[in-house]
Design a protein around this nucleic acid. Structure first.
Length: 633
DNA sequence: GCAAGGTC
């Protein structure tokens, strides 16, 4: 709590730490549509610490002439402050402070220019909370109940607007990889000699579908034994420095460089923030506003061992405006060092702090200059093209401080158009197409951001929820049998919650609420009506049928077992009963054989035997092949 | 017990 005077009046400032109120219900069954706002520490684990913030506010409120909500100027900030004022005070004597940076000047201006409560933000924010709660709590409860009826096991399960589409995306990628069937392609690899050195050339043509084409090209190259330079393209590329980090970019970069998960990065960044070493990390901004005194921060950083020299260099070169990225955030600037010098840091903290400082420093530097020369070569009289690419860094600039990014120099000779090079080796090669990678925590975070679901503050946590529920596992994220069952139940019964489109629909409705065209009540009532009929339908089905009938009724089974694995079969193909994964694998196996047959003269047996040997063949495909081999023996 | 959103 802080006290002071502003224009002759006593001002008391007390803080909260995020939401003090949460939605809850006393009902245990579903559907449940009766909810209220209550104290968070009563209804949520790990929120005991919130009560002390509340007790301070509770003491202050009765003595105040009026109240000012000075939370971050965004929708959640409006809801956080509104709930406190509504429960402890009187919204008719309340105002909103409107600001975008936390400088003395701007806060002072905002305080002398108080706005009425921003009802449009409050109403749309409350509606967002309620919609997420109604969908999340009700579908989660229904899911647990359906799961118990179908599989006889009582488990804590969950579904939500953000977590469920994320689970489905992980499953999609998992299926793509594990039902993948590689296809053969053919190409040639060429080396040339120039002076005393040899160079490998890059192919500027797509691999061939037929072995013949590659063999013919190889034969022809062996005969002519030379390539002629047909084009020289020399240019100087300008490589811009990266902007300072927002949270997503920090999470992606630290995953790439150090293997930290997004949640780990968040935890370490939080520590650095609480130690006053970096600015607020939960930001989407990639900009440092004018109001931040970069010169002062750089002067302070110049006493850092190792990195201080770069800060001094920037000051002496008067490079004081950092590059800006596209990311915006109304409440916070991009992540940057505060200028405080750390004493002793833990391992993770030291590594992340250095990354943030280097990134901040790099953003002030001019672009690096890289000279690139591309020689295009072809067989005399023919059109097949190869490339030889050389690269040389002319000026490092930001690359020297942001040493994580390395531009490898590639030495190549100086060649003229028309010059001939002797071919030293030609090989024809068989290549196989590669399977897609499973998602990592970093790549699924990126997917969530680009799909517009979750926020800076919640994405990493929501990914951890999927792990906690045991829907997924592994560093390369695989979906468990439980995750697959949950995804299939949700897709069959509550399709909307598995799709990113639900978020878009919420956004459209909430915009209407913010514009005052539709009331919060109308939007909530509409959701209740829609969910109510759906949930009653599911509940009725559960009370009328047994597990095995239900699976058929819900479209989760055709009433038989998968010939390959014994799981619930969902379809029949080629005389087999197949579960969803083995069905997809079987279909890919049959379909891809057409491609193989057109490119090679492999029989189906040769094809199958080769696939079993290749490590890129999906495991469900291998299961199907083994089953077919055993059956036909 | 279950969401997603804040923040410590």
């Amino acid at each position: 709590m802080w006290t002071g005077k502003f224009r002759g009046k006593d001002v008391v400032v007390a803080s909260t730490a995020g939401h003090l109120y949460t939605l809850y219900t006393d009902e245990n069954d579903y559907p449940t549509f009766s909810f209220s706002w209550g104290h968070r520490w009563v209804y949520e684990k790990n929120s005991k610490h919130l009560e002390k913030y509340y007790r301070v506010l509770e003491k202050l409120f009765p003595n105040a002439e009026y109240y000012v909500n000075a939370c971050d100027y965004d929708i959640e900030g409006s809801v956080i402050g509104y709930n406190i004022i509504k429960h402890l005070g009187d919204t008719r004597r309340a105002y909103r402070m409107k600001f975008s940076t936390l400088t003395k000047e701007e806060l002072s201006k905002a305080l002398s220019n108080l706005q009425p409560l921003d009802w449009s933000n409050i109403e749309s924010g409350l509606a967002r909370h309620i919609l997420d709660w109604l969908w999340g709590i009700n579908v989660s409860r229904a899911l647990m109940s359906v799961y118990e009826h179908l599989f006889g096991e009582k488990l804590v399960l969950s579904a939500g607007r953000v977590q469920s589409p994320t689970l489905l995306e992980l499953l999609k990628r998992y299926i793509e990889r594990e039902t993948f069937v590689p296809k053969p392609t053919f190409t040639v690899s060429v080396r040339v000699r120039y002076g005393s050195r040899e160079y490998s050339l890059t192919n500027a043509f797509e691999p061939f579908e037929k072995l013949d084409s590659a063999v013919r090209l190889a034969q022809s190259l062996r005969k002519t034994r030379k390539l002629v330079v047909s084009n020289v393209d020399k240019k100087v590329l300008s490589l811009e420095p990266p902007p300072p980090f927002n949270l997503t970019q920090l999470q992606l970069e630290s995953a790439k460089l150090f293997g930290f998960s997004p949640a780990e990065t968040m935890r370490i960044a939080e520590e650095l923030y609480l130690d006053s070493l970096i600015s607020y990390p939960r930001t989407n901004s990639e900009k440092i506003p004018q109001s931040i005194d970069n010169a002062k921060i750089l002067r302070n950083l110049s006493s850092l061992p190792n990195l201080g020299a770069y800060a001094s260099e920037l000051l002496s070169r008067k490079l004081l405006s950092p590059r800006e990225g596209a990311g915006e955030d109304p409440a916070h600037p991009a992540i940057h060092p505060t200028g405080y010098i750390p004493r002793k840091l833990g391992d993770g903290e030291a590594v992340l702090y250095e990354l943030i400082v280097r990134r901040y420093l790099a953003s002030f530097y001019p672009s690096a200059r890289v000279e690139e020369v591309v020689y295009t070569m072809k067989e005399p009289g023919a059109g097949v093209l190869f490339k030889l690419v050389g690269r040389r860094v002319l000026s490092q600039e930001w690359l020297k401080v942001y040493h994580y990014r390395k531009i490898a120099s590639v030495e190549v000779p100086t060649l003229r158009v028309g010059e001939e090079l002797e071919i030293s080796s030609v090989r024809s090669l068989k290549l196989y197409t590669r399977q897609p990678q499973l998602h990592s925590k970093a790549s699924i975070l990126k997917w969530m951001e680009s799909s517009g679901i979750g926020t800076e503050s919640t994405r990493a946590q929501i990914i951890e929820t999927l792990f906690k529920r045991k829907y997924v596992r592994g560093k390369s994220i695989a979906v468990t049998n439980l995750g697959l069952r949950v995804a299939r139940i949700l897709s069959a019964l509550f399709k909307e919650i598995t799709e990113v489109e639900l978020t878009r629909e919420f956004e459209r409705k909430l915009r209407e609420v913010a514009l005052g065209r539709v009331s919060r009540k109308e939007v909530v009532d509409e959701a209740i009506a829609k969910l109510g009929s759906k949930l009653e339908e599911v509940k009725k089905a559960l009370s009328n049928s047994r597990g095995s009938e239900l699976k058929v009724k819900f479209g989760l089974s055709i009433g038989s077992r998968c010939s390959v694995c014994g799981g619930d079969a969902v379809g029949r193909e080629g005389g087999l009963h197949l579960c969803s994964l083995h069905l997809a694998a079987y279909q890919n196996l049959v379909k891809t054989y057409e491609t193989w047959a057109s490119r090679t003269n492999a029989s189906f047996d040769d094809y199958s035997a080769t696939l079993l040997k290749l490590s890129t063949t999906g495991r469900f495909v291998k299961d199907v092949i083994k089953y077919l081999m055993k059956r036909d023996r």
